[in-house]
Nucleic acid binder design. Structure first.
Lengths: 198, 198
DNA sequence: TGCGCGCGCTTAGAATTCTAAACACATGAT
DNA sequence: ATCATGTGTTTAGAATTCTAAGCGCGCGCA
């Protein structure tokens, strides 16, 4: 039952109900037209299930509405999103960030849809031995972070330092930089970047 | 496995694949970001399953696209729809058409999304005893039909006639009219109406 | 009041989507 | 060549959506 959470805020069900009502149809009427059952519509309207695109399309056809219309309304109705549950973070794939192939697995979990914002915030986990690689990172941003647990060696230009919990960093990302976990416990860092670098 | 048919023409899968490719992601990359599995994405991209709205939303978030954007593109790409399978007809509910309460169940199956067109075409089935009711129908249209099987009594203004297979009718719908199946076999009629009356 | 009818809700089970694991194929390195 | 790695596909089974049937409630009418 985790699927519904994602769409909870969207309230697909409520919107569908409104559309149905505006046509003066009961759940059974709509069910008949769309070729579903009243029970299914009840569940969808209560956001107890997230309909398949196929089912939603049939429902919207029956009330003469297109999918893009439907979601435009939903996305207008929804104000901007401010809060994100831990399970909503987007897990970025290391290679896309420009990490060298064999580099140990770094977990980068991003808050929200960074490409819609000026600020990118990440929850990073460096397992023991993790390394962003000898090919130093370079991008047009400014970035900062704070170590939460474990320890990590940070290289910026020709400066190198090992940061421990509650230590932080802040630099211009155009300077070549690198992160390495030399210890034997995972290191967790929370970082921010502006503008988003990937 | 009937669900996919509806969305076949939409090619949700193909569109998703394009979006993923444009970000230079593999199915596995996207799966990691969106919190699904590569297998699921493979099936969706081949249109072998129709994703839930919740799943599609997660996928689109991961490629920084909104649902309305996604479906706008789809609906633009899709030319107008010309052909409709028998199972795609929209079943209209009698009461909405203005049929009296107790009137026997008439099945009205509409071709396509009439509210987007000037012409409304119906496949109508009148079971034995079916009657659009003594409260005569009136609307601002012109309508015509042909009897396919069975027989039906049609009243238009003060004219009454029983039509048999291959007989037809054509009149201004502002004249009060009524249909009754007096026989003991179902009567099937194919009718057209312009502009659509409901 | 009591009955019938339509409404939305609930629930067990059927059908579909999604997961986890394996497969087939290609490409590049040793 | 052979292996390792990356890609998309397939498949049995878990999880979720959807169906079919029934429930409870409210409203209108006898």
């Amino acid at each position: 039952m985790m699927t519904a959470n994602v769409t909870d805020r969207m309230d697909v069900g409520g919107k569908l109900k409104a559309a149905r009502r505006s046509k003066g149809l009961s759940q059974r009427d709509l069910a008949l037209r769309a070729g579903l059952t009243n029970g299914a519509i009840s569940l969808i309207e209560q956001n107890k299930t997230s309909p398949s695109v196929a089912s939603l399309k049939r429902l919207l056809d029956a009330v003469s509405m297109t999918l893009s219309e439907f979601f435009s309304e939903i996305e207008e109705t929804n104000g901007p999103k401010f809060f994100y549950g831990a399970d909503e973070f987007i897990e970025l794939s290391p290679q896309e960030i420009g990490l060298s192939e064999g580099a140990s697995r770094v977990s980068l979990r991003q808050v929200g849809n960074a490409s819609l914002h000026a600020l990118q915030m990440l929850h990073e986990t460096y397992p023991p031995g993790a390394d962003t690689g000898p090919g130093m990172l370079v991008h047009e941003s400014e970035e900062a972070g704070i170590v939460i647990s474990g320890a990590i060696e940070v290289t910026v230009g020709d400066h190198v330092k090992v940061l421990n919990p509650n230590d932080g960093y802040l630099f211009d990302s155009r300077l070549p930089h690198r992160f390495r976990n030399l210890g034997d416990t995972p290191c967790v860092v929370v970082s921010a970047c502006t503008p988003p670098s990937f």
